[in-house]
Amino acid sequence: MEIVNKLLDKSALSALIERLSKSGKEVYAPVKENGITDFAKIDTIDTIDFDCITTIQSAKSLVFPRVENILSYKKTSEDIVVKNVDITAFPEVVALGTRPCDAAGFIPLDAIFCTDNADEIFNARLKKLTIISISCKKADEYCFCTSVNGNPGNTAGSDILLTEISDSTYFAEIVSEKGKAIFDANTDLFKETAAIDKTPHLAEVKQEFTAEAINEKLNTLFESDIWDKQSMRCVGCGACAYVCPACGCFDIQDENKGNKGIRHRCWDSCGFGLFTLHTSGHNPREKQSQRWRQRIFHKFSYQPVQQKQFGCVGCGRCSRACPADMNIAEHLKEIAVN
């Protein structure tokens, strides 16, 4: 649909949050607790941390929880009864205060889970998620969205994008049908406006390279020693994948208690040696440098072929989370100029 422009006062946003929670929707927003800002369930605007550049973890767990039941079973002496997940019981969720990079992260994630054999569980959660993002007025040295086709005021992936244009007012762009449904039910909170140039209200993130250039360069870099060099410090902890809004790799495990149990899927990472280890002991990616190479190739070379999407949105979370201080933007820049 064509984007509809409105204004939303902060007091009206406050009322909107209360109405959404009261209507039975679960509203998640960045909340600061013990010095750390992450997405948490809220029912009032007062608890939102509007100042954080990005939350430590992305919002992906709203559709792809860290650990999630995919079936349950019960064994009797004669039989095994398997119970499906009740996807109709999933709550309606509103993610509020996601950044444009977070919102963009749902696009490659959706492509992974819904290309061929659509994943019904993921799909059901995504269908019930409405994303109200807030444009970035601040960025830090880890942000590189503009180098991977994003920008601090990008609407892609959001259902509504709010851009703070004054201390009391947001410029609201209604981007999708889901966004329109929220607007339609709360028209009294929005005001009319003509289109507004968001640029003066957005953070500046300098473009250092392009995703297309990385993609191009990778065609000849598979055997390069750049992977050894860049991953020398990598400790293989997998934090980069866990905080990444676009990483969708998972493991499947059973948890048994007596005669019953659940089968769950949980986040996994191509940075772990166990990820590809065969039972025979053979490991196709036995060195950390091969696993680092896989991470970059998957996001910038393979995903564009497999799912027609880049697997990176430039949020910089992996660099912020890395205990060895590997900076993906610097490494990508090095690849781009190689």
């Binding site: 992974i112 889970f113 290309t115 061929d116 054999n117 994943d119 969708g248 790799c249 998972f250 493991d251 499947i252 899927r265 996994d268 191509c270 990820f275 590809t276 280890l277 065969h278 039972t279 196709p284 896989q294 190739f297 998957h298 070379s301 393979y302 072929v305 497999q306």
Partner: peptide, 24 residues
Amino acid sequence: LENRMKCGFGKCGRCNVGKVFVCK
């Protein structure tokens, strides 16, 4: 080929080799 697999249909990511999934 026999890479380690979990899902079997190109989502879990572990059998990925280059632009293909061994499973899919």
